[in-house]
Each structure stands twice: as C-alpha cells, then as structure tokens.
C-alpha cells in the first residue's frame, strides 16, 4: 500500500507539468468558449516563442549549475543592433568607408553580438571565478546600457517587409516564430540528450569536481553553454523586434524571470544536474496558457501576476516533495 502510493506520486510527478497543462486547458475551455480555438492556439504558441528561445539556453545553463540574468538585456541589444544595421550603414571614419549590411548580414551581426556577450559572461564565470548570479547581473546592466547608447533611447522602427517575415508571417500554416522556436527545441533536445556536449552539461552541473577528475574540460563546457545561450537570446531578440517592426530600447525587461520560471515549472532543478528542454517547453506553454486564459476570463492583470507566482511556487513545491520521496 505504502509502496504503491509512493509509486503513484512518482508517476504523477514525472508528468506533473503535462498534467497541470492539460488540467488548465480543460478548466479554461470550460469557462471560456473563445479559448479552445485553433486561432487562439497559434496565438499562444506565437506569444511564447520568444520565451522558448530564451529558455532553451536558460535550461542548459541551469542544468550546468549556473543562472543567467542577462538574457532580457541581450535580447534587447541584439534586436537593436540588427535593427540599426538594417536601417542605416555604419560609417567607419578612419577608413573613410561605410559598411552597409544586407538583411542577413544584419541578423548574423545581431546573433554574433548575443554570442559575444554570452561568451563574456562565460569568461567572467570561468576565468575570473565570479559567481554566475553576479556576473550575469553585471551583464544585465551593461547590455541594457549598450542598448540605450546604440538606440540613443529611441525605438528603431520601419524595418521593412522582408524582416517582418520572421515575426509575423506564416509558413505551411504555422507562424514563422513557432517554426524557429520549434526547430531550435528539436535541435537542442538532440544536443542535450544525444551528444557528448549535452552529457557533459549534466555532469558538470551534477558534480563539477567529479567531472574535472573524470577528464572533462569544465571551463570550456561552461563557456560554450553561456555563449550558446547568448546566441539564443539574440534569436529571441530578432523575433521580438520583427514582430513589433521596432527595436525598443527597453525590450525584454524582466524576461529573465519568465524564462527562469518556465525552466523551474518544467522540473529543472536550480541546483543543477537535472532537467530537460522538453520540460521547459511545457513550462513555457503553462505560462502562455495561463496568460491567455486569464485575459480571456477578464481577470485583472494585477491578479494575473499573483496567479503566475502561485503556479511557480506550486511547481517547485511538488518538485521538493518528489525529491524528499527519493531521499528516504
């Protein structure tokens, strides 16, 4: 009896996020007939695609035993850099030339900036040994400041119809942002579960010292994780910028919290070594469905925040109970 109830708890907790999601979808569709429609479904998916991109990187960082507070600022800077390069050429006075970027060039430059800042995070953490929380807190401020400098505090708008495809167009019936985030999810599920790099991320987060003694180059693994996460934040920045046809200097403020929330709701442990991209996707969906449902039910935006907080606490509480079950 005791044993079987324990197994049941284990079984439920394994699918806890999926269960919560299904229950939420059922509950909201009973209360609002505008919720369970194809249009609203795509709408939710499009809305969460930015958070999904951010959270893939965040998941890998947290599994590796770190944290990244700078994703929102990197998102803003990458979006602004790309938008700026699309709008106007960059003069290089001492060579007497102007660099005029193509659309692809501008986007690649944006992603490169994201990776560079992520790489810088990694350097601070592995070389200077600054704790990830503090290192990325610094970057949160630096990247935001650089965004303000680059945009001079004003939105960069009117980016053209080609760039708008990324955020607003449909392809084979699905929005392009959903394609982008979906493909990235698949790619990184394979990376984390089926490659040596992925295995090493789990090992480093699970036990750094044992990983080092097992011959892993712990610093290089962490450096790559932060660099990749920076690149993914930049991709999120491109999607967000394209959707609004505008790079906002204060885009992405507070996104790091939504991203961490999605990762945690998805069952990834903040102490590292455990978790999955798939869980994070469910976490993003739960937040997305919750937001959409609360809007459709005309719940005040202030209450929406309270409810979101409660969901995060519940997710972590269930996780705690499950782990306590394993300790005994």
């Amino acid at each position: 009896m005791h044993k079987s109830s324990k197994d049941l708890v284990k079984c439920i907790s394994r699918f806890q996020s999926l269960l919560v999601l299904v229950l939420m979808v059922i509950a909201i569709s009973l209360l609002s007939d505008r919720f369970l429609t194809a249009a609203n479904g795509w709408n939710i998916m499009r809305q969460i695609s930015v958070n999904v991109c951010l959270s893939i990187g965040m998941t890998m960082i947290i599994i590796a035993g770190g944290i990244d507070l700078s994703v929102g600022s990197i998102l803003a800077l990458a979006g602004a850099v790309t938008a700026g390069l699309i709008k106007s050429p960059v003069p290089i006075p001492w060579l007497g030339i102007e660099l005029d970027f193509t659309l692809a060039g501008a986007m690649i430059a944006g992603i490169a900036v994201g990776m560079l800042l992520g790489w810088f995070n990694g350097q601070m953490i592995t070389r200077v040994r600054i704790p990830p929380f503090v290192a990325t807190l610094g970057m949160l401020s630096i990247a935001r400041g650089l965004t303000m400098l680059w945009t001079k505090g004003f939105p960069i708008t009117g980016l053209g119809s080609s760039f708008a495809i990324i955020g607003t167009a449909n392809f084979l019936g699905a929005p392009v942002p959903v394609w982008i985030s979906g493909l990235l999810v698949l790619l990184f599920i394979v990376v984390t579960k089926k490659t040596r790099f992925g295995r090493y991320i789990y090992a480093v987060g699970g036990n750094e010292q044992a990983s080092r003694l097992s011959g892993l180059d712990v610093d290089r693994i962490k450096l790559w994780v932060y660099t990749i996460a920076g690149g993914l934040s930049a991709v999120a920045g491109l999607i967000a910028t394209s959707r609004l046809d505008s790079a906002q200097p204060n885009a992405g403020i507070g996104y790091e919290l939504d991203s961490i929330a999605a990762v945690v709701i998805g069952g990834t442990s903040l102490s590292g070594g455990q978790g999955s991209i798939w869980g994070t996707v469910l976490g993003c969906l739960i937040i997305g469905v919750l937001n959409s449902g609360l809007v459709l039910l005309d719940v005040s935006p202030f209450w929406q925040q309270v409810v979101k907080g409660i969901v995060i606490l519940m997710a972590v509480a269930i996780d705690r109970l499950r782990n306590r079950g394993e300790d005994q």
């Binding site: 090992a203 036990n207 003694l213 455990q274």
Partner: peptide
Amino acid sequence: QGLVMGMSVENNISLSNIGLIESYALL
C-alpha cells in the same frame, strides 16, 4: 570527487571515455 551522484550508473561508467559510446557524433 568520484561520481556524479544524480546520474545513472551507466552514464557514470561512460563519462571518462565517452568516445566509446558515440556513433556518428551521437551517443
């Protein structure tokens, strides 16, 4: 220092020489 306690037995055994269990860059 010896083990990643939260990892499975098989993952621990293959951690130091992971090339042995790779085929075409995938585990």
